[in-house]
Write a protein that binds this DNA or RNA. Structure first.
Lengths: 232, 232
DNA sequence: CCATTGACTCGTACGCCGTACGATGCAAAT
DNA sequence: ATTTGCATCGTACGGCGTACGAGTCAATGG
């Protein structure tokens, strides 16, 4: 049946055509390109949220017609995929001697992951529905390579990777949904009052109020890594 | 400004009016109710996915007019909230002496959580965007209570809860996105071939192919609990 | 020099969506 | 007999994603 996404992702050629920008827009925007579309999509997602990204609005911001987008992009899902992956690029730890401090490398990558996703809260809500893009796979690869080099046994490697991965994913996703639900403080407050009746323990521990998320994240991560480390 | 969701969630009264079903449908469906709407929404989500849930389709399945739904339900977001929470109910471990085996209780609840979400794959993708419903909070409360009873220090309690929580959330969310991307095997296979070029380590460890997800889930969880347990 | 090609843009239109509004039916209360 | 209030629903509006086909313009090559 209908071959969805069969190889080429849009109608534009993959080759590098070096056409100068057309004269047609006398003082308009630069010409459309996949990069410009993705960048603007991210802008739109940042300012208006997932539901605020509309092909029409996207075209408006780019100063183009709606259907022009479809030359560079398959469809709206494609835009989501590209925007998500574009936000998850990783350039490695700031300055390292090759592979000495494996633990520092892992922590840096995972904290950067978390920071990237929280900088673009829509990404956490998008991620479960999208395929794994190259930047995501790249991070998994880096994680795998680093742990392997650090001496984690092959038999434990996958469990170790997934444990760390799950931890980070869960932390960002959970955090994202908290941000949403705290949007209007009135409702949150009301939820908390009848919370103390029905959920005394989490009320007492101030589980939902403790806002040192990144500290808790780091502590849990450290704990996880302590267990994962072979010894050193 | 506009008071969204201010207290009462729909126009219907909360009181228990015991009206018998109206005579009007001579051989039709039972009368509408919030419960019937939610149950049908879950059906629809199970069979057609997140994008398959439409107010019109929902009404069709219920044998009612579209706008009738809005008497029982605020809007479509409300339907999502209710469907999600309805799927996350928890009835406790099968048969336990009060609070003896705290570890068994925690494992059971978390594995049930994971199983519930995987039974309804749309739930993982919905969760990041929705507020915390009573069933979610109930599980957090149970987790908190159990860990506290098990002797986890108050200072470590929140980190412990969030670590476990994040792990489970991440596992289900990750798993859900894998299910999506494996939808058509052709694309998956192609992704794997150029995977071995660009991502040699995760290719070698068969990270993406290892399909013993629940085994890995359990192993990682055991590890986490080992670390969390005070001693016993 | 002109015709052809192919990269790129875009106006129109279609079918579907969520839902505001107001009309209706019907049982219970007055 | 009238009023009230729960519940249903038809119509309509504005917005959405995108199929289709016509248009523009630079490069090509005869």
């Amino acid at each position: 049946m209908a071959a969805k996404r069969s190889g080429a992702r849009s109608k534009r050629s993959q080759g590098m055509s070096v056409r100068l920008q057309s004269v047609q827009e006398s003082r308009g925007e630069p010409p459309l390109s996949r990069e410009r579309i993705v960048a603007t999509a991210v802008e739109l997602l940042d300012t208006r949220g997932v539901d605020g990204l509309t092909m029409r609005r996207l075209a408006d911001r780019l100063g183009s017609g709606v259907m022009s987008l479809y030359w560079h992009v398959d469809n709206k899902e494609d835009v989501f995929d590209l925007a998500l992956d574009s936000v998850l690029e990783y350039r490695g730890p700031p300055q390292t001697v090759e592979s000495q401090d494996w633990r520092g490398e892992v922590v840096h990558m995972l904290e950067d992951w978390r920071a990237s996703m929280l900088r673009h809260p829509w990404s956490a809500s998008l991620l479960p529905r999208r395929a794994l893009g190259p930047n995501i796979l790249g991070r998994l690869e880096l994680l795998s390579k680093t742990l392997s080099k650090a001496g984690v046994a092959d038999a434990d490697l996958n469990v170790a990777i997934w444990s760390l991965w799950n931890y980070v994913m869960g932390a960002t996703v959970t955090r994202a949904s908290f941000d949403l639900s705290d949007d209007d403080r009135a409702a949150a407050q009301q939820r908390l009052t009848h919370l103390s009746e029905r959920y005394p323990t989490i009320e007492r521990s101030r589980l939902l109020l403790d806002d040192d998320w990144s500290g808790a994240f780091r502590r849990g991560l450290d704990f996880l890594l302590d267990g994962l480390a072979p010894k050193q």
